[in-house]
């Protein structure tokens, strides 16, 4: 239905107003230079039109001063815009500590969203107001892109790896969620909404309806079913490294390098165990490619993450060393 003329998106995240300020600055720059060129061109057109009796003596054909001036000023301005944009980009890319985790799986043509407490949603994401939310996203097929215009954030969602995105909603309400990367026939149907609720309402919503179990519980069951625990024993005497306390720490690899055990590393180690083998262990783990869907992998990751949080685990979590 037509809804009248709207010219500006809502501002509903902590990032939105910063993006808008930079946008307004760029508009000011655009208006200034476009007007400058238009005014000069129009003025010259009229003043120096053929037949007009004006002084045309001593035309200037080159001026190094002018050239340097109109190379230098735009260059300085461009560097200012670059730096401003880069600082903002750093903020958009860096979620910081203590964010709430939500997993996103894109597929042709729907969004599947998974709250850690177990609640699953399709094409709809409920989040609490004023809390940082970090999305860990992957795709089951082609490239998609998670885009919430009111939050001014977007990130491509790729098959075969995780990308992340964070936001903090500042406004209650319902906002568009779009797939922004063309993904085939139903691309424009791959839309949904983000519902921002008060933290109280969000808790109520989380506990309401169905009795879904937390992700880590599903993950633990899967861990047992796939017999992961035969090798990954908690007492560090198995054929594989103990997973207690591993998540978020730096892992020494057989190659001598080290890597932070984040979601991407765990995912890779499940699907391609030999890619980055932990130092001191043999390459005996089989691949689980084909046995696990993206959602299963996410459950396992949630379980392994939960092992890092348990105070009684044999190896307490240590902060990642520099890498």
């Amino acid at each position: 239905m037509p809804q009248g003329l709207q010219l500006f998106p809502q501002q509903a995240s902590t990032i939105a107003k910063h993006v808008d300020w930079l946008y307004f600055f760029l508009i000011a720059v655009t208006i200034f230079f476009a007007t400058l060129v238009c005014v000069l061109v129009t003025f010259f057109m009229i003043r120096y039109r053929r037949g007009a009796k004006v002084d045309r003596s001593n035309p200037v054909n080159h001026s190094t001063t002018l050239e340097l001036l109109w190379t230098g000023i735009p260059l300085v301005l461009a560097m200012v815009i670059f730096a401003w944009g880069a600082v903002l980009f750093y903020a958009i890319q860096t979620p910081g500590q203590g964010a709430m985790e939500i997993y996103v799986v894109g597929k042709q043509w729907m969004w599947k969203l998974q709250h850690p407490a177990g609640k699953k949603e399709i094409n709809e994401l409920h989040v609490p107001l004023g809390k940082r939310v970090r999305l860990t996203m992957t795709s089951e097929d082609v490239i998609h892109s998670f885009y919430v215009p009111a939050f001014r954030i977007k990130k491509d969602v790729l098959p075969g790896r995780y990308t992340t995105l964070w936001f903090e909603a500042t406004k209650l309400g319902t906002f568009h969620l779009f797939c922004a990367e063309y993904c085939g026939l139903g691309h424009s149907r791959m839309i949904g909404r983000v519902v921002v609720m008060t933290p109280g309402d969000y808790e109520k919503w989380l506990s309401g309806g169905g009795n879904e179990e937390p992700l880590e519980v599903s993950g633990e069951r899967l861990f047992q079913r796939l017999a992961c625990a035969t090798c990954h024993r908690e007492d560090s005497k198995g054929r594989g490294p103990s997973l207690a306390g591993v998540f978020g720490t730096s892992v020494r690899l057989k190659s001598g390098a080290s890597v932070v055990a984040d979601e991407s590393y765990i995912r890779e180690s499940i699907l391609e165990p030999q890619a980055k083998l932990t130092a001191g262990f043999d390459p005996v783990m089989p691949t689980f490619t084909g046995q696990l869907g993206e959602e299963g992998i996410i459950q396992l990751i949630a379980y392994i993450k939960s092992l890092a949080r348990k105070p009684d685990s044999s190896a307490p979590p240590t902060p990642p060393t520099s890498h």
């Binding site: 993006v19 401003w84 880069a86 600082v87 980009f89 977007k154």
Partner: peptide, 19 residues
Amino acid sequence: GLTGLFLACLGVDVHVHDT
């Protein structure tokens, strides 16, 4: 050309990319 600056600018491009 000037609107190209918006797209070269990281912070703004995140929002307007693919729109």
